[in-house]
Design a protein around this nucleic acid. Sequence first.
DNA 1: ACGAGTTGCGTAACGGTATAACGTGTGCAA
DNA 2: TTGCACACGTTATACCGTTACGCAACTCGT
Lengths: 136, 136
Amino acid sequence: MTSHAQTGVDLTKNQTLVMGALSNADSPLSAYTILDKLRDDGLRAPLQVYRALDKLVEFGLVHRLESLNAFVACRHTACGDHGQTVFMICEPCGKTIEITDKAIAKRLTTLAGDVGFALRRATIELRGTCETCQAA
Amino acid sequence: MTSHAQTGVDLTKNQTLVMGALSNADSPLSAYTILDKLRDDGLRAPLQVYRALDKLVEFGLVHRLESLNAFVACRHTACGDHGQTVFMICEPCGKTIEITDKAIAKRLTTLAGDVGFALRRATIELRGTCETCQAA
DNA sequence: ACGAGTTGCGTAACGGTATAACGTGTGCAA
DNA sequence: TTGCACACGTTATACCGTTACGCAACTCGT
């Protein structure tokens, strides 16, 4: 369907709706919250959202935050290296900062190698308080 | 109730049961799986398990794996520094390796500091394949 | 000894998260 | 035109976790 500028991936109608909901939000959304936002657009069942999310994650346009059971639009689609992203989740306000860092990735690879573990994907989620909320 | 050798913490009856179930298991268990294992010991409701788990996590005897919605007995209770533990989860067999690493902890602290984020706790969970499963 | 506070326990009901199992429609290639 | 792949839609169900309530036991200060 509509083409995504940064990746050239064609999104279907439902994928576009879900992507839009996540892009507009300023903090991660649960699948059911997304569903509620999109009821007026014709979505009715959780599965419609989950299917779209699965694809969007596969395309690298969306990340899943495991510790929150929620999803967030990727802020730097251009970067490769998904699967090694560090998320900083502000507990007061819910906003998340997304960072990739070679040093972390390298160290994790080393640690895995030390015990013979074949690393496929890393989930790194930090909890704390963002600068804005500390000031407030 | 019974005293835990390594920590001196007194566990209640339910806490002891749940701790026992996790210690016997060789991979992480969900709360409901624990419940099923302990039905013969008199447990009947999820809340009984969740309450025990909350305390055990608080004591540092058990870790929660966010990406699995499951729990695992801590393999090195002696170490302090919970909240910075790296878990390597083998997808074929489910076993998890638990490691703490100063370099990772330090780098995460630095990254957080760079953006003014007050770090409270880190979730680091790696997915991949353990040495045994690679050989098989 | 007594009451107040705290902690753990037990049960029922519920809400949030995710998937299974169907079947339908469309586009495209052999 | 038949078969395949893919997205879609619906219903039902499974799994994860919490709220709300009340009771029992154990402190601890008076």
